[in-house]
Amino acid sequence: MSGRRKTKDRAATIMLWLVMALTCGILALILAFLVSRGWSALSWEFLTKKPRSMMTAGGISTPIVGTLQLVLVSMGFAFPVGVFTAVYLVEYARDDWFTRALRLAVRSLAGVPSVVFGLFGLSFFVIFLGFGPSLLSAGLTLGCLALPVIVGASESALLAVPKDYRDASYALGATQWQTVRKVVLPSAFPSIITGAILSVGRVAGETAPIIFTGAAFFAPRFAKSIFDQVMALPYHVLILATAGTNIEKTRPIQYGTVLVLLFFVLGMTMTGVLWRARLRIRQRAQR
């Protein structure tokens, strides 16, 4: 029956290859579609000039800067809070019902739809705390979105640090905080950073959390204070596609914006994934 087995093996290999080709094909199709429609709009001017004439001409420098500012604010909140939450969960928390509930809460946060984050941001940051629609409100809302991703990645990174290192540190007379600060965190840091890079890609592309909390339809200047509103790439795409004054004319700009956003998000994701793969190889070699 070895002939039958060989045929089945070949058939399975071919099927898996086809499925993989299908997945790559979908990605290639999306890219081809977007590039063909948006390539004409891309230029150095496009990236560095502000939109003019009701956004039918000019560039997208304001949304680009706005997206970068949103990334900075959201990471400024989510990165330290997320990393130290993970430190608490892995190094300090006892294995009781409270810790389990805390873990469940963080994981559940990852499943909350982004529009719900937007509404939360509106009622809490914008209205209740009185920050108003602003870079701060939108950034903090995005930060809440990124939080479970960072906590998850940091937890994995911390759990991957070998117990041996902690034992050695304690046996030399270190306190728990000294051990975390001098051995565990530095060892886990590259993986933690990778998780942060991946969440940057996620945060940059989100529209719903920023619509109600601080994204502006149009801003003549870059945001100078954290209480100013900001333009943002994903939101810019949305308004060009639906609410612009001359949708036909702005179509290439719309696709150009999509391409810029896509390259940024893909760039971040690929950097994160490739770096994480390199780290894993290096860690395995050390064992």
Binding site: P162, D164, Y165, D167, A168, A171, L172, G173, S187, Q286
Partner: peptide
């Protein structure tokens, strides 16, 4: 305990140098 572990040194079965 910090003082104790400084007074009583320990080396482990498997070498475990820090990275």
């Amino acid at each position: 305990l910090i003082h104790l572990r400084r007074r009583v040194g320990m080396v482990f079965q498997r070498p475990n140098p820090f990275p």
